[in-house]
Design a protein around this nucleic acid. Structure first.
Length: 761
DNA sequence: GCCGCCAGTATTTTT
DNA sequence: TACTGGCGGC
């Protein structure tokens, strides 16, 4: 009996089909990782393929690691020479070797979103764009989607035609690119774009990698974007042994440029593609699977398929609705406690939610109840200030051309080098067409820095000293030395005690990470380099740190949960407005809601034995109370699969708008609502006691709904526009749109929530 | 040049 | 609510 006998029929078909393009449509929990690992084993052990010729691309480093281990257990030898990595790290590896062909130095730095923003700000300053009109974030996302589509500045400008706004963006894009290059830096998207450019323009490099990667496998193919597609097509162009695995129902990264057409059109792109469908689910109990199927079937643009299982029905799906998000969190925490008392482990459970902000309440409850937990995502460790500072030192030592890094640390800790000096250095550098650091090495050539010259000299001497040390000592030692010799640790002591302590701990943690990296390299017999460490740091995802062996409850977003599974899954915050999010509900593009539904499908199918859905009628979002209906996705699940625990579930009274605590308070403080106002908001909801919950607190409101303290015809005052008369109040979305005729500022439409109009009598 | 306060903004998801 | 960035005072 061979290892391949344990596979089911379509799985075996996928494993044995090794030549030519292959599309594996693998439903959730259908054993696609098994197929991939067995396929690799088959290639090596049965067909005698050299592991060296195999490339497997996964979504996260964690998945890569896992795959390597599982292959290792299957094949006799050589698993370690297979390339298993994410798109991004594979590209970095290629670029480190050949990027000089594109005019970069191989010690380029990788910019994260923070760095991008800083750079973009500078770009805007340079090309004279008001960041209040065009926000950095918006500009960056425009640039990013262009890159994801492989549209370079020239083409972008061409496409812009006469459109003024687009022309501006084209200008920004061009300058942004120029500055990245000047800093010898690449952003995330560049890693892919530049690799494709490299392969397209350098035939010998392309040939090298085509020869090397004779067998290519891509996991989570539904989430690839256009550049990634182009990359894969290039690499597989010669031998065409390309196997992609994916599930169009789990495509959840459209916002990041993922192109679901990549998987839907695979058969068109590769006309001789063989297609295998894996529809038997080995993960979830029958009821859970049925729920998942009944939700996803509401999507129109998908390849039709239905997962099935030969497992029993299992438990019903638990549904609980609460008054507030506090109650919700408490229930989840208590429920987990209860199950642990009954013999479960903490790591049997995971809590999934739509937005990172939701983790807060859960975390508080978990702490209060002494439940071990781990939050995945949220603020990245490497995004913390002290960590970024230290990394900026390392980047400066490693790549002297990264001006952003140098400017970040030139006065951290305080050396008395101020903004004026920094600007003068920059100006001088720009004039002479050299880098910031290079300019600062010779302060005597810079007009107007006379007094700071000595300080600049000692800063430069410090960096140069570190550069020297970098040659001699390990990264760990260098890092320790930087922390000490710059006085960084010392400077923290002046800060708030608790804060400083946390930061110092983080610094220790960073040193530990460096040590771990070096050890890793030693194990793998590779040289540990500063560039290598910085790259690893830039490309880790928080999910990579997840450790199944540890006994904790995992809390994370639905996006992070992709590819994972747990015996008991809690889906929290299933409310219209939160999940599906308010933006997708109001979007006129139906695709958006479909993507949200896929996200729900991903969430449900993470559960093996038990699924608990929870929602709250009332929840604080950004300091405001929101009233939400139960999620429409819940209503797509047949009632007979659901157990509400004998509690009453209401579809939810949707309160139209104006639910904010502060407005309620303000409304109470001023005076009852005018007659015009209640007629303006229609009687539909007026009788439903929208503030029932708030009444508990007592003094807030009388009984009727509403919340504005003024009505049509009233005189109001606005902070900026002065006094005026209310002409119209319209109900819209979450807020009221108020039209006011100001005495001096004319007629203005504004949202009540932001306008903070005050009634004057 | 540095520090502290205030105002404006944000939240959908992340390699 | 919570964070960030800008501005003004010392």
């Amino acid at each position: 009996m061979s290892i391949y006998d344990t596979l089911n029929e379509p799985q075996r078909e996928a494993v044995l089909h090794t030549d030519g393009p292959l599309l594996i449509l693998a439903g959730a929990g259908s054993g696609k990782t098994r197929v991939l690992t067995h396929r690799i084993a088959y290639l090596i052990d049965e067909l005698g393929v050299n592991p060296w010729n195999i490339l497997a691309i996964t979504f996260t480093n964690k998945a890569a690691e896992e795959m390597r281990q599982r292959v290792d257990a299957l094949v006799s030898i050589g698993a370690e020479s297979i390339w298993v990595s994410t798109f991004h790290s594979a590209c970095v590896r290629i670029l480190r070797r050949f990027i000089d062909r594109l005019g970069y130095d191989s010690r380029f730095t990788i910019y994260d979103t923070d760095d991008q923003k800083t750079l973009m700000k500078e770009v805007c300053r340079k090309v004279d764009i008001d960041t209040k009109v065009y926000r950095e974030r918006a500009l960056l996302s425009a640039v990013s989607s262009a890159k994801n589509e492989m549209i370079l500045p020239d083409e972008f400008e061409l496409n812009a035609g006469g459109d003024f706004g687009k022309q501006k963006i084209a200008k920004v894009y061009r300058e942004y690119e120029a500055m990245l290059k000047a800093n010898n830096a690449l952003d995330f998207d560049d890693l892919l774009v530049k690799t494709v450019q490299l392969l397209e323009t350098q035939p010998d490099v392309l040939d090298y990698y085509q020869e090397r990667f004779r067998y290519i496998m891509v996991d989570e193919y539904q989430d690839t974007n256009t550049v990634q597609f182009r990359l894969v097509r290039l690499l597989a162009g010669k031998y065409r042994n390309l196997c992609v695995v994916g599930d169009d129902d789990q495509s959840i990264y459209k916002f990041r440029g993922a192109n679901i057409r990549n998987i839907l059109d695979f058969e068109h792109e590769f006309s001789d593609a063989h297609v295998v469908r894996l529809e038997q689910n080995y993960r979830s109990a029958g009821n859970i699977l049925r729920a998942a199927n009944s939700v996803i079937k509401n999507n129109r643009s998908r390849k039709d398929k239905t997962l099935w299982t030969d497992k029993g029905d299992g438990e019903k799906i638990q549904l609980r609705q609460f008054d507030t998000a506090f109650d919700e969190a408490e229930y989840i925490a208590e429920d987990i406690k209860k199950e642990v008392r009954e013999g479960a482990s903490y790591n049997d459970s995971a809590v999934l939610y739509r937005t990172n902000a939701q983790s807060r309440l859960l975390e508080e409850k978990f702490i209060a109840m002494n439940i071990p937990y781990k939050i995945v995502g949220g603020i990245n460790f490497y995004a913390r200030r002290e960590i970024k500072d230290l990394l900026a030192y390392l980047k400066t030592v490693d790549n002297g051309r990264d001006d952003l890094a140098v400017r970040r640390i030139i006065n951290v800790p305080k050396r008395g080098i101020g903004l004026t000096t920094i600007n003068r250095i920059q100006e001088s550098a720009d004039e002479r067409g050299i880098g910031f650091y290079e300019a600062l090495l010779a302060p005597e050539l810079i007009p107007g820095v006379g007094r700071s010259a000595a300080k600049l000299d000692s800063f430069a001497a410090l960096i140069e000293y570190f550069k020297g040390q970098n040659e001699k000592e390990s990264i760990t030692e260098l890092l320790r030395e930087i922390i000490e010799k710059t006085g960084y640790a010392e400077s923290l002591k002046d800060e708030d005690k608790v804060e400083a302590e946390a930061r110092l701990e983080n610094l220790d943690e960073l040193v530990n990470k460096a040590a771990a990296y070096e050890e890793d390299c030693r194990d793998r017999d590779e040289e540990a380099t500063l560039s290598g460490f910085l790259e690893e740091v830039a490309l880790v995802a928080d999910i990579d740190s997840l450790d199944e062996a540890q006994d904790y409850v995992v809390l994370m977003t639905l996006h992070s949960a992709k590819g994972l599974e747990f015996p008991h899954v809690y889906l929290a915050g299933l409310e219209d407005g939160l999940f599906p999010s308010y933006l997708t509900i109001t979007s006129d593009d139906n695709e958006d809601l479909e993507e949200e539904r896929r996200l729900c499908y991903v969430g449900i199918t993470r559960a093996e034995e038990k699924l608990t859905l929870t929602c709250a009628r009332r929840r604080m979002v950004r300091g405001e109370t929101q009233f939400n209906k139960m999620s429409r996705f819940i209503r797509e699940i047949p009632m007979e699969l659901i157990d509400t625990g004998n509690k009453k579930i209401e579809e939810g009274t949707q309160i139209p708008v104006q639910n904010t605590y502060s407005h309620a308070k303000q409304a109470f403080r001023t005076q009852p609502f005018s007659a015009q106002f209640s007629s303006a908001v229609s009687g539909k909801t007026a009788g439903k006691q929208p503030f029932s919950a708030l009444q508990k607190g007592g003094q807030l409101l009388s009984g009727k709904g509403g919340g504005l303290s003024y009505g049509v015809g009233d005189r109001v005052r606005h902070m900026k526009f002065g006094e005026g008369t209310v002409r119209e109040i319209k109900e819209g979305g979450r807020d009221y749109e108020v039209t006011v005729e100001f005495d001096s500022a004319g007629v203005r439409k504004m949202f009540a929530m932001f306008a903070k109009l005050v009634k004057i009598s």
